[in-house]
Design a protein around this nucleic acid. Structure first.
Length: 555
RNA sequence: GCCUCCGUAGCUCAGCUGGAUAGAGCAGCGGCCUUCUAAUCCGCUGGUCACAGGUUCGAAUCCUGUCGGGGGCGCCA
């Protein structure tokens, strides 16, 4: 029995009690049954505070109500014992057969175990990374590559139709500085003011020069244009290749420029104007965002007639909505948190619902530590701390895991020495090793001719450690659902670490050996444990998959 | 000045939208390998949940303020 199933059962009991008149609740009150795992063993397998929640509205006292629910609940065959404790907690012990059945249910669900359909029918756009191609992907982009992709996977596992999207600009001032820097390098000149330095500039400049030997001797304007075009193509190619190697592939690469060329920007501005949300002042066109909660109004067309950067954002958002996305995520670094106000105001100005049609997630900064000291970035000097630096140091799996195991709103310091270790201070190895161990066990079982039993007897998984492992596995769907709902993929990682620990304890328990020892015959209990191991393997495999981390079968 | 994130064990961090005696890993100390992968497992040590108020049966969690640290506040992109 999963916690969700137990919660549903309790809800039925409450409904039955109100139906029979034994309990009266105010109209429209639907109890929100909260089932949790108690910290202390003596408090049973699961506990609920439902009686404390409902006592006041029902006009009774918590313990009396708890007794009432207990009486009904104990009628169910899946429930072994119910205790009323403390101020009115219901401590529930699940019958071992009902508990053990979870293993078979997981094996039956297979690759789908843990999924849910809470977002079924939702079309969701997740925009992340979106770095302009002026240099290699830096750490902030890398954090979002890992977390954004994991979030997309979690949303998909919850039934949503998800599009991963990358928005980039191949024109504009940043790109001009990039192009000028390339040309300066090709001509052997110093890095221009506000330009980009670093080895990658020289590498790309040299590559462009090799492709177009005459380009650097063109008149400067034409030469810049030539280096811009070829340089952007190369840089963007590298970024895409890096992301691909990182296991992240986008469905859509969206060019900001296309919005200007297609007239989408003008249409967006017209739409906002017709809704009375723009005005002219000081020769510029403004979007009235302040009335929708922004700090101040924003210029969208400058007094010289050129569109401001935000005009692209307006058109881009409108474009996404017109492509049918119900919900648009934008994943940004902490240095962009100031955008939330204007973007939400923009959303409302279009007549949409902020935080419902548009969600902006902010990820805090990432630092790499080597020997305890942070690696610092400097654009001028070209000391970019990039995705490559991270991946080269610790590998893709550890990098993705290290970036997804923390909440978005905390700064991360990644200690390269720690994450490069193949040891227990490295959580990714701990989880992967547990998975590999299940695979080895199953291979060993197959060698002995053992197969997943068709006449599985769930009551044989009656050891205390069996129950602990089963309860851990049963938690997975709830963890996925909350990761999706709260947009917090790190919950998956933390769950896997805790569950790997429970599995290892089970593995270490002599009474729970899965394989027959020595000349012992294969018993029904051995086969029941094989089912449990199979369920564990599936759960770890699916969980690692949601993080985009590989699940090796052997380590 | 304003906005925003963070402050929990020596270190790095969880804490399931308010529950029972605040957890994990690492570090430190001490144990378990003839039997499924010891990258495992067991025990011990370690806390003013930054501080002060408030909300209530109950607060690390919600609200207000203070202190400390990170990041931001362009007709840049």
């Amino acid at each position: 029995m999963t916690p969700e199933a137990l919660a549903a059962l309790i809800a039925e009991v409450v409904a039955a009690l109100t139906g029979s008149g034994a309990l009266s609740l105010p109209d429209g009150l639907t109890p929100n049954v909260n089932v949790e795992r108690p910290r202390v063993k003596e408090h049973g397998d699961y506990a609920t505070n439902i009686a404390m929640q409902l006592a006041k509205p029902a006009g009774t006292n918590p313990r009396a109500l708890a007794e009432l629910i207990k009486g009904q609940l104990e009628q169910n065959a899946g429930i072994a014992k119910v205790d009323v404790a403390g101020p009115g907690f219901l401590n529930i012990t699940v019958a071992s057969a009902a508990q053990g059945q979870v293993a078979a249910d997981i094996v039956a669900a297979g690759a789908q175990y843990g999924s849910n359909e809470t977002l079924k029918g939702m079309k969701i756009n997740v925009e992340f990374v979106s770095a302009n191609p002026t240099g290699p992907l830096h750490l902030g982009g890398t954090r979002w590559a890992a977390v954004g992709d994991a979030l997309a996977r979690v949303l998909q596992f919850s039934g949503a139709e998800v599009t991963r999207e990358y928005y980039f600009n191949d024109h504009g001032a940043q790109i001009d500085r990039f192009a000028k820097s390339l040309l300066a390098s090709a001509r052997g000149e110093a890095v221009p003011e506000d330009g980009y330095g670093g080895q990658y500039i020289h590498d790309i400049a040299a590559a462009v020069t090799a492709q177009h030997p005459d380009a650097k001797d063109l008149p400067t304007d034409e030469a810049i244009e030539a280096y811009r075009e070829a340089g952007v193509t190369m840089m963007f190619g590298e970024i895409k290749a890096d992301l691909n190697a990182f296991g992240v592939d986008f469905d859509v690469y969206f060019h900001e420029n296309s919005l200007h060329e297609s007239g989408a920007v003008d249409r967006a501005i017209e739409r906002l104007t017709s809704m009375g949300n723009t005005f002219e002042k000081d020769g510029a066109l403004w979007l009235a965002t302040e009335k929708y909660g922004d700090d101040k109004d924003r210029v969208i067309v400058r007094s010289d007639g050129t569109p401001a950067y935000i005009s692209g954002d307006l058109a881009y958002y409108l474009d996404k909505r017109e492509r049918g996305f119900d919900l648009c995520f934008i994943l940004l670094g902490a240095d962009h948190h100031g955008y939330i106000g204007r973007m939400m105001a923009m959303c409302e100005a279009f007549g949409d619902k902020p935080h419902e049609n548009l969600e902006i997630l902010i990820g805090q900064m990432v630092n790499l530590l080597r020997d305890g000291t942070p690696l610092r970035m400097s654009k001028r000097a070209g000391t970019v701390v990039s995705m490559d630096d991270l991946v080269d140091a610790i590998g893709v799996d550890a990098a993705r895991y290290a970036l997804t195991r923390y909440t978005n709103d905390t700064n991360i310091d990644i200690d390269l020495d720690q994450w490069a270790k193949a040891s227990n201070d490295n959580p990714v190895f701990y989880v992967q090793y547990a998975h590999a161990r299940t695979c080895r066990m199953m291979a060993n079982a197959a060698d002995l001719g053992m197969a997943i039993p068709t006449d599985f007897d769930p009551s044989l998984l009656s050891h205390e450690r069996d129950g602990e492992l089963l309860r851990a596995l049963a938690e997975f769907p709830g963890v996925v659902a909350s990761a999706a709902e709260l947009r917090e993929p790190h919950r998956i990682a933390r769950y896997l670490e805790a569950s790997a620990s429970v599995f290892n304890k089970w593995y270490d328990t002599r009474e729970c050996r899965m394989l027959p020892q020595g000349d012992e015959p294969v018993t029904a209990a051995n086969l029941a444990r094989l089912m449990l191991v199979a369920a564990t393997r599936i759960t770890f495999h699916n969980g690692l998959g949601l993080l985009g981390v590989t699940a090796p079968e052997r380590m």
